[in-house]
């Protein structure tokens, strides 16, 4: 436990994120690999973070793993659920956050934070609707890069309606819009609106307590945030590090582990 850094690794279904923090709790290095659980993604994420600081495992005081693949990461001192980690990480990034919306690769979660820790949560159904995977499927259908989706949606003149809840049916709906030569931008905005509506339903079930902070990969999509904010009637904050909230939370728990042992 003599290492200089505490490490958190968030192994999701689509990506692996690693965060190293110093004893002051500040982020020293972070990395993201676009492969998730069951792949080389987690070890690549660790190597990338280590590489940035030129450190090895020896320099790490404790490791906490989280995310869908948390139990399969070798060498973790502790595993924690991603809900606790996201709450902790989001609170660190934005201490005013009371409600956290996390849309990851395969699920969506809403959390309430009270006194800096998780107090309530709700997860989506066992279904890809309204998650990162949904957007990924749609971006393939539209032959857009996922990173281009937000801008495309923002350019929409008349957002279309995507009414199907199911990803598979929504895909056919998108294809039928395409075959009617609808504008790609309008379709994308419709897709974002449908993600926002579905997520808003989940958020409202738990209750909206401002300030609302968004984490997870989908938080980077400004157009989804725009529609979600409209659906919920509140501002939605995020951070450039939003996708690292889970890994950051895990790193903060790892630091706590180090401090407790010392």
């Amino acid at each position: 436990m003599n290492g200089k850094y505490a490490m958190g690794i968030d192994i999701g279904s689509a990506t692996s994120k690693c965060v190293l923090i110093g004893k002051d709790g500040n982020i020293a290095a972070n990395s993201l690999i676009a492969s998730g659980t069951g792949t080389a993604g987690p070890s690549m994420a660790v190597e990338a973070a280590f590489g940035k600081l030129g450190v090895t495992r020896e320099n790490i005081s404790a490791i906490v793993s989280t995310g869908y693949g948390r139990n399969s990461f070798p060498g973790a001192d502790k595993t924690m659920s991603e809900l606790s980690c996201h709450a902790r990480g989001a609170y660190h990034l934005y201490p005013e956050a009371k409600t956290v919306i996390d849309i990851g690769g395969q699920d969506a979660k809403v959390l309430h934070i009270s006194n800096g820790a998780l107090s309530q949560f709700l997860m989506n159904d066992k279904c890809a609707a309204g998650t990162g995977r949904f957007l990924e499927v749609m971006s393939h259908v539209l032959q857009l890069d996922i990173s281009e989706m937000s801008e495309a949606g923002a350019r929409a003149e008349k957002p279309l309606e995507i009414s199907s809840t199911c990803t598979v049916f929504a895909e056919s709906e998108v294809i039928s819009h395409l075959s009617r030569s609808a504008s790609i931008n309008d379709i994308v905005a419709g897709i974002h609106k449908s993600v926002a509506t579905r997520t808003a339903g989940l958020v409202k079930r738990l209750g909206v307590i401002p300030e609302v902070f968004m984490t997870g990969g989908v938080a980077r999509n400004e157009n989804v945030r725009h529609y979600l904010s409209r659906e919920l009637g509140v501002d939605i904050k995020t951070s450039p590090l939003a996708q690292y909230a889970g890994a950051l939370g895990a790193a903060l728990f790892a630091l706590e582990l180090t401090n407790n042992k010392e």
Partner: peptide, 12 residues
């Protein structure tokens, strides 16, 4: 997913 929910609940 149920396991994650139970774990998070226990941590909470």
């Amino acid at each position: 997913q149920a396991e994650t929910a139970v774990e998070a609940f226990r941590e909470m």
